[in-house]
Simulated scan of single mutants.
Amino acid sequence: MTARPQRRRTAPGSPGFLRRSQSRWSERAVRVLLVAAALVSVLTTIGIVVALIPPAVEFFGKVDFGAFITGTDWSPLFEPPRFGVLPLVTATLVITVIALLVAVPLGLGAAVYLSEYAGHRVRGVFKPVLEVLAGIPTVVYGFFALRAITPFLQRSWPGGDPPEVFNALSAGFVMGIMIIPTIASLAEDSMAAVPRPLRDGAYALGSSRMQVSTRVVFPAALSGIVAAVVLGISRAIGETMIVAIAAGGRPNLTLNPLEGMQTMTAFIAAAGIGDLPTGSTGYQTIFAVGLLLFALTLVMNLISIRLVRRYREVYE
């Protein structure tokens, strides 16, 4: 029989023992830091909920929840006050849809080009330039929509009544430009993660580059693309400065994007800097609308998680 080699033990106090001990302590410290980083987001979410719920519950003790959700007149600071939030929700959805009509085709088109068509040099130039858009302050986008896009639409409108000074169309268009980098960058990363053999196999069968892009790479990266689009939706719903500057501050229940309207975030921004007495019903509307906005964002994230899990592709 061959004798089993005995494991060499490092005596306490020796250099090897100290190095191993230091390595274990560093691993524990890194683990603690990572757990703390993960807990920050969880605790932040809990803190937001804790801050929103008590004033919102007190508000709904005075205002009927059904009237709040289905009411068509929002004038909480007038006499008599009206608390129908539907105009704010409708404005938020209208501007978000316009933004998606701009951002999704352009963002996904940019992602396909950068992933499948652009060379290394072109990608090294185009991608940083595209991501510069994400670093522009949103207040700059808002003034760009008000001072450049709206006058252009008013001058070039083909017929009928031109857009108002404050309108949802220019706000949604500029918001779509703002979220293009979010969608394009995440979608391009998902496409770049698709294994090269899938592309090579499609090319070997005689497929064109467009066929490979749309029928092989795009379906394989669908989970990441869905996540990118949903993240863009969440950012559009939560955007404040663009809609506050370009869309106006008048609650208006309409689907006409040429008119001015007020979104949920714009109302929170306008009411939050006002002179509302703390504890008053008008002050509590901020928390009620904020809780509704939080719930909509949470629903969007849950839908995103479900879609990502459904269309996720795992490659070995």
Score class of each variant (00 low, 15 high):
45 T>S: 12
262 Q>N: 10
111 A>G: 12
141 Y>G: 06
309 R>A: 03
307 L>N: 06
178 M>Q: 09
54 P>R: 03
24 R>M: 09
315 Y>K: 05
105 P>E: 12
11 A>L: 10
17 F>Q: 07
29 A>G: 11
171 A>F: 12
188 E>F: 05
227 A>L: 02
12 P>I: 13
86 L>M: 15
196 R>G: 06
60 F>T: 13
8 R>N: 07
309 R>T: 12
95 I>D: 09
252 N>S: 15
135 G>W: 01
161 D>M: 11
120 H>T: 15
109 G>Q: 10
37 A>P: 04
252 N>H: 11
118 A>Q: 00
29 A>I: 09
285 T>N: 12
242 I>R: 02
90 T>M: 15
273 I>S: 14
42 V>W: 00
203 Y>I: 02
184 A>P: 06
20 R>K: 10
136 I>L: 13
119 G>C: 06
90 T>D: 09
290 G>N: 08
32 V>I: 13
22 Q>V: 06
21 S>I: 01
314 V>T: 12
193 A>W: 06
229 V>K: 00
281 T>V: 15
147 R>L: 15
218 F>D: 03
205 L>D: 06
291 L>M: 14
198 L>F: 11
142 G>C: 06
257 P>K: 14
213 S>H: 06
15 P>K: 04
254 T>E: 13
120 H>Y: 07
287 F>L: 14
43 L>K: 02
103 A>E: 05
299 V>H: 08
282 G>E: 13
307 L>V: 12
114 L>E: 15
204 A>C: 03
